[in-house]
């Protein structure tokens, strides 16, 4: 008998005859739902992620590439890596970045690993959405936007559409039915990398990005 069979046999012999009743998650979440409008969700998301040391800029569909170019210049980003084959990537293809070389991700990670670790100053990604309750971004890895793009470069620029901010993680899992099909890597990000492992003193930029910059696309006329 294999280790697997022995472990399972022991567990089966001891398992209760009837499994417990399925826990009722709605009983906890439904009465606590806030029913916030988009503006309030954006405000709460912003307060949350800013409290985790992320930078948030509100922009519009038309203006965000110019804002990103300005931010790159301010932060002295010489090279920014991005995924070209996305709606945002196609906008960047046409944008002018006076101080920054835009480099589309090309090939497998092995081919650009050295550059990724040593020469790229920033990575740019879209986001799938965000969570208001905790100030959290949601990223799904894709062929166009690989996992290391938001991990290895010292600065991570993330583009967020204010319409995709949801109240809670639970709401996201439910309404978007993530269980029906997850990508290789789904990721929640709440701020730049940090640690408090030395005497409970908070320090940013432990192993991942030192800076997280969120650009929120919010239609004109909405809350700034």
């Amino acid at each position: 008998m294999s280790a697997r069979d022995r472990i399972l046999a022991k567990l089966r012999a001891a398992r209760p005859a009837e499994p417990n009743a399925l826990p009722d998650l709605d009983a906890h979440y439904t009465p606590r739902a806030r029913g916030e409008a988009k503006t309030e969700r954006l405000a709460r998301f912003r307060a949350g992620i800013e409290s985790f040391h992320a930078e948030v800029h509100i922009s519009s569909e038309a203006d965000w590439p110019a804002l990103l170019a300005r931010l790159c210049a301010d932060k002295q980003v010489a090279t920014m890596l991005y995924g070209a084959d996305t709606p945002a990537g196609r906008r960047l293809d046409q944008a002018t970045f006076p101080a920054t070389t835009l480099r589309p991700w090309a090939g497998q990670v092995e081919e650009l690993k050295a550059d990724l670790f040593h020469r790229v100053d920033a990575g740019f990604t879209q986001t799938r959405g965000a969570i208001a309750e905790t100030g959290t971004l949601m990223l799904w890895s894709s062929e166009a936007e690989p996992r290391t793009l938001s991990l290895v470069p010292p600065i991570h620029f993330a583009l967020l559409d204010a319409n995709t901010i949801q109240p809670t993680f639970f709401d996201v899992l439910r309404t978007e039915n993530w269980a029906a099909g997850l990508p290789t890597n789904a990721l929640l990000i709440s701020g730049p990398s940090k640690t408090a492992d030395i005497q409970q003193t908070l320090a940013y930029g432990a192993h991942g990005p030192k800076e997280l910059v969120v650009i929120v696309i919010n239609a004109e006329g909405d809350a700034q």
Binding site: G107, T136, S141, P146, L182, A186
Partner: peptide, 23 residues
């Protein structure tokens, strides 16, 4: 740690697949 949320919540559902560029 008294954090509302951790910086990362990483959900891994497999190795690099055809088309994936890293992992």
């Amino acid at each position: 740690t008294g954090q509302a949320v951790s910086t990362y919540f990483n959900m891994i559902s497999g190795p690099r697949k055809a088309g994936d560029k890293d992992g």
